[in-house]
Each structure stands twice: as structure tokens, then as C-alpha cells.
Amino acid sequence: MRYELVIFDNDGVLVDSEPISNTVLAGYLTELGHPTSYEDSLRDYMGGAMHRIHDTIFERTGKRLPDDFDETFHGRVFAAFERDLTAVAGVTDVLGKLAAAGVPYCVASSGSHERIRVGHRKTGLDLWFPAGTVFSAQDVGRGKPAPDLFLHAAARMGVAPERCVVVEDSPLGVEAALAAGMDVYGFTAMTGAGQLDGARGHFGDMARLPELLL
């Protein structure tokens, strides 16, 4: 099957941000009186939009996070990005091969547009994702695991969902892609294949992705 659109998740797939952001998140939640380990953060929040953090803490404790939680968290994450963020190894080669084959691609991320921009600018990926190819959970009402974001990206790119394939590294993202009626391949660099159930295939090295997609 030749796909007409490849939709990339951002965090953990394009930029190696999950270790950074989940370390920051675990530390900040713990600081606020909600003890959270790095492993807890990966399990509960990886791949989700910001509202998932607020919803989960409220459901568990009955307490609301501070009004400035998002602003403070993003400030800490962006500072860490400027120091440490890199692109996922081999991903620019994948993008180059898709471009050479004439296969359109875009990014659909649970992160905010600002978070995507900061990460792409730091890693040079902004050169690969021009205006009109970057979509955020901010653009829709509900983030992953709802299918809304992937359906929005497909609609904006003018491709039917069944002709799209998603590249994801989180259980929430795989669930969202399947709910959107799209094929999905699971990137297992940080997440075991068993946690990405339902994916059409799995890969742990970006060098393998072009053969799966093309």
C-alpha cells in the first residue's frame, strides 16, 4: 500500500524530548506535593496533551494544579530544550527519503505550537516542516487518545484517513491513530512493542522506517 500522507508524532519521534520533559514534569509535580517518578510520568502522561496532567491530578487528589502550572512547566522545559535537545537519530534521513519519493508528511503533536517551534528551531527540523504542515492538540478540542488531532491533520492536508499512516511512540498516540482509521507504526526506542498494541509494525531504528512506509 502506498500511503498518501505520513503523520509524525513529535516528542520522541522527531525530537528526543521525552526524557527531558518527563524528568522536568516528574520533578515539578513532586515539588507541588504530588510525588511522581520519571517512570510514573512516562506511564501516565507520555503522548498526552497538557489537559491530561490536570485531569489526572484532579481525579486522583481532588486538587487543582496552580493557575500558572502550564507556563512554569513550559518555561522549565524550554530552558532544558535549549541546553540538551537533539533530533531523533536518523529522522532527517527519513524525511529526505519521503521528500525524494514525493510522499507528503506533517507533524501532529500533543504539544503546543510553541513547544513544537522551540524544539524544531533548536534541532533544525524547522527547515523540514514549513507552515501548514504543523498541527497541535491546541488546534482541536481533545488531545490523544481522541482521534481529533489526526483527523484534523489529514483534513488540512487533503488526504482521506485511510490513506494516511502515523508514526508514534506512545500508547495514547497509537490509540488515537487507530480511532482515526489510520495505519500506525510504533517506534520502540523508549516504549516496548507490547505497549504499542495495535500498531501495524514496530521499529527501534529510524533507518528501518522508509522500507516500512515506502
Results as ranks from 00 to 15, higher is better:
Ala100Phe: 08
Val134Met: 10
Glu71Asn: 11
Gly102Ser: 13
Gly12Trp: 02
Phe58Thr: 15
Ile20Gln: 01
Ser21Ala: 14
Thr56Met: 14
Asp139His: 09
Gly47Arg: 01
Thr92Gln: 14
Glu82Asp: 14
Leu149Ile: 13
Glu162Phe: 00
Val24Asn: 02
Leu212Asn: 05
Gly158Lys: 07
Gly27Asp: 02
Met157Ser: 07
Ile7Gln: 05
Ile57Gln: 14
Arg76Pro: 05
Pro210Gly: 00
His120Val: 10
Glu82Met: 07
Val140Arg: 06
Met190Glu: 13
Glu71Ser: 15
Arg52Cys: 06
Ala137Trp: 02
Asp183Met: 07
Gly96Arg: 15
Ser21Trp: 12
His51Met: 10
Val24Gln: 01
Val166Arg: 09
Val165Ile: 11
Ala153Lys: 06
Thr86Met: 03
Ala89Lys: 15
Ala153Ser: 05
Leu98Pro: 01
Asp205Leu: 00
Lys144Leu: 01
Gly198Thr: 05
Val166Trp: 05
Met50Thr: 13
Val13Cys: 04
Cys164Tyr: 00
Thr23Gly: 11
Arg117Gln: 12
Phe187Lys: 08
Pro161Gly: 01
Asp126Ile: 01
Met157Asn: 02
Gly75His: 11
Gly141Cys: 09
Thr56Ala: 10
Arg117Val: 03
Ala154Gly: 04
Ile53Phe: 11
Leu65Pro: 03
Asp139Thr: 04
Cys106Phe: 02
Gly119Asn: 09
Tyr3Asp: 00
Phe203Met: 07
Ala193Gln: 10
Leu95Ser: 02
Gly27Met: 05
Gly194Ala: 04
Thr86Phe: 01
Ala193Phe: 13
Val167Glu: 06
Gly75Val: 08
Asp68Trp: 13
His51Thr: 13
Met46His: 12
Gly111Arg: 09
Asp67His: 15
Arg142Phe: 04
Asp183Gly: 04
Arg117Met: 03
Leu172Trp: 04
Gly201Cys: 00
Leu149Lys: 06
Ala180Val: 06
Val140Pro: 06
Thr86Gln: 11
Met46Tyr: 11
Phe150Val: 08
Thr92Asn: 13
Gly143Asn: 05
Thr56Asn: 14
Pro171Asp: 07
Asp16Cys: 09
Ala100Met: 10
Pro104Cys: 00
Met190Leu: 14
Pro19Glu: 05
Lys122Val: 10
Asp93Trp: 11
Met50Val: 14
Gln138Asp: 14
Phe150Trp: 03
Ala80Met: 05
Val94Tyr: 00
Leu213Ser: 06
Glu82Phe: 03
Leu65Lys: 12
Leu32Tyr: 15
Leu212His: 10
Pro66Gly: 14
Asp68Asn: 15
Arg117Tyr: 00
Ile20Leu: 10
Tyr28Leu: 08
